[in-house]
Amino acid sequence: MREPLLLLLETATEVCSIGVARGRELLGLQESPPGQDHAAIITLYIEAVMEQAGHALAELDAIVVSDGPGSYTSLRIGAATAKGICFALQKPLLAVDTLQSLAEACKALAPGCRAYCPMIDARRMEVYTALFDEALRRLWDTQAMVLRAEMFQGVPNPVAICGSGAAKALPLFAQGGVHHISLKCSATYLIAQALNAWHRQDFQDIAYYVPMYLKPPNITIPKPRISPA
């Protein structure tokens, strides 16, 4: 059977990374420098990678999004864009765990580590993170965590940290045993999990798919200023 042709949308962080792959083979890639407005470039990048790949959108087998966690707004830009293509061309939608994709990429660069901890920048000293062992089995669930020097207590080292939240974490781990692997989210890293999902036929509902937000929206309920009737 022919390997699937996949459009890959990675918009969890400030990098807008768009790729197209036939099976494991990357056929086209466009990545923005940080700080670019995803909404301004995403469809232009899609057009560009399809041209690099020499395929029309209609030939795609599935659209793949990075599921998060990450920036709510940029995840939604990716998801809304993916839904438009899926809806217009009747294509299935696949969602890939962003942290796991980073952990896999990290292990490929630093294969000897005992644990892998991808981190995506959240506000202040918080990151979205999860921990994986040397075989990339999940040790911690995906969560929002405030960085602490002791967070890796009891975790076998060396631990590799990576992702957009890792740079601000590094100063906490001066005692050693923690390596920083410089790595940004990329559409390339979505391929392995996307193929798994494709073969499992693990498709998302195009109408109701939402990215992994992790937290409910922040709401403060205003108090009425006079006693209500």
């Binding site: 909404a39 995403i42 899609i46 959108l57 939604r76 830009i77 993916a82």
Partner: peptide, 8 residues
């Protein structure tokens, strides 16, 4: 975003 990807 949805309008753009539909149009594309």
């Amino acid at each position: 975003s949805f309008a753009k990807s539909l149009a594309l």
